[in-house]
Amino acid sequence: MRTGYTISAIGHALVLGWGLVSFSAKPFEAPPIDSVMADVISESEFNQLTAGIRTAQQVAKPAPVVDKIGEVKEPPKDPVEKVTTKPEVQMTAAEPPAPQPPDIKPPEPKPPQSRPPEPQPAASQPPAADPKPEPDPIAEALAREEAKRKEEAKKLEEAKKREEARKREEARRREEARKREEVKSDLDRIETALLDKRAPQRQAVTGTMVNPTPSLGATTGTALQLSQDEIARLRAQLYSCWNPPVGVVEAKDLVVTVRFSLNRDGSLLGEPIVVNRGRNALFQIAAEAATRAVRRCQPFRLPASKYEAWQEIEVNFDPIDMFRG
């Protein structure tokens, strides 16, 4: 048993030693990945970003990317040419009048039956028009007969009208369907006529000089932005230095906005300034706590390459945020 133990112990020591040598890498050294900020930018903001300044200097036109030296191909002078050389679109023989755009509908004939039948003046008139006070049974009977007949005639007419309207509606619908069909087939024809049937190919961009690099951007774009991670890191650093006044009522009135400038090494440049004013009696204390936090926290650990983005910072010290974690 002694030999077994000796051999086993030596073997394990060897394996462990080998593991110490070969396993001692730092395999988990992953650089923090910046999370992308999903931001909605309004049109006016975009315009502001890209707006030029009237007094700006004229900058040399950036050279376009060029693969090989050759004659400079001008873009075609007349962009319409390609369109005109196309064979004319052949319409079918029985071509109806010019196709109307599909969205313009012919004026809809109003169904007459939707209109309430106007009271015929003739029907209602006799009693009203007749000023005679004496009752005349014959005349009255006549008038009634007359009214009845008129009523019947009106009914008949109305039925006829309704029939007519229905027919017209049907015809209109048929016509519309036909037109729609026509427009669709026309669109198809146009589309096939417009298709570019040349084989796709890339042409080397020729110019007077080979220039493989695209033009450089500005050295300091103003669109530089701190990533969400960096913002969160800065915020965590600030909050770790911050002792907000505790046990305060109406803590939401104690949001202190502090603005401060930073040097390139992350140290404070000048004094932090409290931007907002609060009504709370304790606001002054909170503001002092916030400025103290900013002073205590320097130097700030921020990426030096984005100095333009953080040389001036405005931070909200919100006690609610703090206690939420």
Binding site: F23, S24, K26, F28, R233, R301
Partner: peptide, 15 residues
């Protein structure tokens, strides 16, 4: 939040 410049833990068998 761990500050970014803290070296990540060394992961040898011993540690």
């Amino acid at each position: 939040m761990i500050p970014p410049d803290v070296a990540p833990a060394d992961l040898s068998i011993f540690t």
